[in-house]
Design a protein around this nucleic acid. Structure first.
Length: 426
RNA sequence: GGAGAGGUGGCUGAGCGGCUGAAAGCGGCGGAUUGCUAAUCCGCUAUACGGGGUAAUAGCCGUAUCGAGGGUUCGAAUCCCUCCCUCUCCGCCA
């Protein structure tokens, strides 16, 4: 696995990276890294020189005979004794080098707002008005239970904490969202993928979910992990390959079940469908040429695709630019789309769109051949297309009516097979 | 779960202790020739890191890499060990 960023780049842009790390609230020690890197180079050069010597003598030994040969063999043994020490030192230095490299964050974009946490994310857009009701609105748990769309009690009985069943029209509604997603995103030139959720370790390391995120992942007794997003398998699709970008970016629309332990979220969103251990998601994944402008353009495009989808559903939303403290190690910039949730009186995240430059592709070893023939690491981006069942929260809560029924968004009605959800058998 | 086979460059595929960073073929690039196309001929054609060099490239020098990691050896793609992966057959399940 290659480093996160290129060591040359890190050394030449140390100040930029330090400022970026500070903005992201991430600890990294570049001065130490530079010192270790110097040491690494020194040891490496020493060792290379000795190896060159060894290779040269090896050839001499082959040609030599008798006493001459014995003499050369003796000299060789001395040389090798000296090398073992150098190799040992280099190995130690490399370990520290690798460890430090893993902590170096990608530089956030200039446009990323300053801030500590998601509370400091900057609203960049709002669409629609928070839904106003001439009656006391219910939350989705109440609505869906009453309408036979979900069963949370039995969900918990069978699946444990955060367990749920979707039922009846809840199933139809979720299915309708998938159908509409297929239609909306499918028309934008994506290649469709149904991605595995049970994925080997490599792709998690490559996408940056490991080693840091061990706690958040379910692991099997075979050493595989359950992915929390199709991004993992989809990015893994081309790992260790040289891809062809001459015909434009690679654009995948991938569907998969998603599994999250939510290890750090005990006590948060304990009710309903906001935060569950297993769900389904359509994900947009893009690989493009290593050009910043291209990444930016596609990032905006991915996010806009999802905004459009929400607009088709006519649910009030806002888009935020995530602040530095809310960015992951590899992310350059991130937008979240948040939908209005009347039951909570606030916007809740439904989508997240980020770009990484070559941060992920270096780790995944995904390259392409540039017009001039050189091999370069591609850029990568990903964004939620739409997750279920979380999206159902906003649909049912925003579309509820005074009589307790739920109006099906127009764009979904055909797929659901009705325009109002009024309970089982209705 | 049982039994076998195998992992070599962009691909196919040889090599099975030194002359192999790796035959041959295909593909690709450059050139010659044929008025176009096809065909033929010649040359070139892995990656990373480092050195030196440059305005920057290229050439040049060195090291490493034949699934991964260890070992044997003066010397390993080739021998030994461990692990990973792929394939085939049987069984089992859907």
């Amino acid at each position: 696995m290659a480093g996160m960023l290129d060591i040359h780049f890190i050394r030449e842009n140390a100040d930029l990276i330090k400022a970026g790390a500070a903005k992201k609230r991430i600890e990294t020690d570049l001065d130490r890294l530079a010192a270790v890197d110097d040491e690494r180079k020194r040891l490496r050069q020493e060792l290379d020189a000795k190896r060159a010597e060894q290779n040269r003598r090896s050839g001499e030994i082959q040609r030599a005979k008798g006493a001459e040969r014995e003499k050369l063999l003796e000299q060789m043994r001395e040389l090798k004794a000296g090398m073992a020490e150098g190799e040992e030192k280099l190995k130690k230095v490399m370990e520290e080098w690798q460890r430090l490299m893993l902590t170096v964050p990608n530089i956030p974009d200039m446009s990323v707002p300053d801030g500590e946490s998601d509370a400091d994310n900057k609203e960049v857009k709002t669409w629609g008005e928070p839904t106003a009701f001439p009656f006391a609105p219910k939350d989705h748990v109440e609505l869906m239970t009453a309408l036979g769309m979900a069963d949370f009690e039995r969900g918990a009985k069978v699946a444990g904490f955060r367990g749920y069943f979707l039922k009846g029209d809840g199933v139809l509604l979720a299915n309708a969202v998938w159908q509409l997603a297929l239609k909306h995103f499918g028309a934008k030139g994506f290649e469709l993928l149904s991605a595995p959720s049970l994925v080997r370790r490599d792709a998690f390391l490559g996408t940056g979910y490991l080693p840091q995120g061990e706690e958040d992942l379910y692991k099997t007794q075979d050493g595989d992990y359950l992915a929390g997003t199709a991004e993992v398998a989809t990015m893994g699709y081309y790992m260790n390959e040289t891809i062809d970008l001459s015909g434009g970016p690679v654009r995948f629309l991938a569907f998969s079940p998603c599994f999250r332990r939510e290890a750090g979220a005990h006590g948060k969103d304990v009710r309903g469908l906001i935060r569950v251990h297993e769900f389904y998601k359509w994900e947009q994944v893009v690989l493009c040429k290593a050009e910043h402008d291209e990444s930016v353009r596609l990032h905006e495009w991915l996010n806009r695709n999802t905004e459009e989808f929400i607009e088709i559903l006519k649910i009030p939303y806002r888009t935020v630019a995530n602040c530095g403290g809310d960015l992951g190690l590899g992310q350059v910039k991130k937008y979240d789309i948040e939908l209005w949730v009347p039951g909570e009186g606030k916007y809740r995240e439904i989508s997240s769109a980020s770009y990484f430059h070559d941060f992920q592709t270096r780790r995944l070893n995904i390259r392409y051949r540039n017009a001039d023939g050189t091999l370069k690491f591609a850029h990568s981006l990903n964004s939620t297309a739409i997750p279920t069942p979380r999206i159902l929260v906003s649909i049912v809560e925003n579309c509820q009516q005074a009589d307790g029924t739920v109006r099906v968004p127009e764009a979904l009605a055909a797929y659901v097979g009705k325009d109002t959800i009024a309970g089982p058998g209705k």
